[in-house]
Amino acid sequence: MTLYIFYFLSFLAILSAFMVVFSKNPVHSVLYLIVTFFAIAGHYILLNAQFLAAVHIIVYAGAIMVLFLYVIMMLNLNKETEPHKSTYLKLAATVSGGIFMVVLIGSLKGVEKIENLNAANQSAGLIKNLGHVLYNDYMLPFEMASILFLTAMVGAVLLGKNELK
């Protein structure tokens, strides 16, 4: 049963990822990317990482994709205005992407012998366990993330200003 769910989610994610690349309209690309993100959130639930799935949906589908849509609407890009690359370059892009995939799968093929599942730590993805790790072992990186957000906010505002006086 879960295997079928896995196949379905993987198929959905890969198909909509292809549609992100190949759809003409940027708004459609964003919508297909949202489908991909939901499929990946389903994968997280399948991996028993519920907190990660919730955060993924909130951050990506909720915040980042809204930002993308907002920028597309603001720049009025919701029609195809983009000149296309030549067929030769497109073919080169596709072939190099495919070769890259073969290399990646080939190089990661050897890791299938992961040690036996740690039965005592089945709840690794649950919020209680994750919060414990996050606020004990990763306290400093967590605080650094807040500084990163502050810097990003200042940078975005600065870049978004019309003219620097």
């Binding site: 890969i14 992100v20 940027p26 993308f68 000149p83 690359k85 892009a93 596709t94 890259f100 995939m101």
Partner: peptide, 22 residues
């Protein structure tokens, strides 16, 4: 790996900045 490669291919394939960012 497939998803990552689709991302790489998209960066090489498209010319629109927003699509590349996606």
């Amino acid at each position: 790996a497939v998803l990552f490669s689709i991302g790489v291919m998209g960066v090489l394939y498209r010319r629109n900045l927003i699509i590349i960012f996606m």
